[in-house]
């Protein structure tokens, strides 16, 4: 019996050790691109994943562009992104309004394990059970960086995947966690500042119908204030606008650009970034 108990205790301990070795190796292998220098890293949720044409942006800027944008990416993913990005990097960040108001449990949060990020979650209103969920989601190492994205194909009209009522629900009242999430994003941005990263922010457009819901929402003031809070972290911060041509349909659905929109946006963004040396928030219209 003693032998069984002894082995029952030793087995998981040894497993934990072995697993950490496997996990760290796999993680380092899958995310090795983060060690690259002289490249541009993009972070955001599905709006950034679908809204940036990496090839076009890379051609404009003359640097390699990697994206960590992911459908449903959340604040934990952002914190890990800021941890992994090397010092002095060039970073494009999109913290959309939807990413701020999305329910915590719907965030992707699968970028790996980080004690620092979890500690910050805990300090900012995440319960132990929510952190446990994050840990469980990250037991398997994931690749969080890519050189390519699959843009939505062009179509003359939008396809409505999620009805407007879905967004109305989100924008109806200020979520209790909004302040905590915004604080966490600011912690991530501060981390990038400490790493001396050159940052560009981008706010992707919504379809006008969604925009009108947003304008009537009590959340709007909070999300607008958030932009000022970001700006206050920098010595020099300005906002600029990118205008998408209305000749063709730019939207795939209410909140995502299609390949035409993504291409136009990336071209303009590339041009502006090449000529601009100040931290800028680009608002796309």
């Amino acid at each position: 019996m003693r032998r069984f108990i002894r082995k029952s205790i030793l087995f998981p301990i040894c497993f934990l050790g072995a697993y950490m070795v496997v996990f760290i190796s796999a993680n380092a292998y899958l995310n090795r691109v983060f060690d690259s220098e002289g490249v541009i890293f993009v972070w955001g949720d599905s709006q950034a994943y679908q809204g940036v044409d990496l090839e076009e942006l890379s051609n404009e800027i003359g640097k390699k562009v990697y994206t960590s944008a992911h459908h449903g990416a959340g604040v934990y993913d952002f914190l890990l992104f800021t941890e992994r990005v090397p010092e002095n990097s060039n970073v494009i960040v999109s913290i959309s309004k939807l990413v701020q108001v999305r329910r915590k449990e719907n965030d992707y949060n699968r970028s790996g394990l980080s004690f620092w990020a979890m500690k910050n979650l805990f300090k900012n209103g995440y319960s132990l059970s929510e952190i446990r969920t994050v840990v469980l989601k990250n037991i398997k190492p994931h690749s969080n960086i890519s050189e390519t994205t699959e843009l939505y194909a062009y179509a003359d009209s939008m396809r409505i995947q999620l009805p407007l009522s879905h967004f109305r629900d989100y924008y109806q009242k200020i979520p209790i966690f909004l302040g905590d999430k915004q604080n966490l994003y600011l912690i991530g941005i501060e981390n990038l500042i400490l790493k001396n990263c050159e940052m560009t922010f981008i706010e992707f457009p919504y379809h006008r119908e969604l925009e009108s819901i947003e304008n009537q929402s009590p959340i709007k003031k909070k999300t607008d204030d958030f932009i000022f809070r970001i700006g206050s972290l920098f010595n020099e911060f300005k906002t600029d606008t990118l205008w998408l041509s209305k000749d063709q349909n730019n939207f795939s659905d209410l909140s995502h650009l299609n390949s035409v929109g993504a291409n136009q946006l990336s071209k303009q963004l590339g041009e502006k970034m090449t000529n601009n040396e100040r931290t800028t928030m680009y608002i796309v219209r």
Partner: peptide, 15 residues
Amino acid sequence: RYALYYAIIILIFWF
């Protein structure tokens, strides 16, 4: 032998 058991557990975690 342990490596085999660990591999099965890792498969359970990962897949």
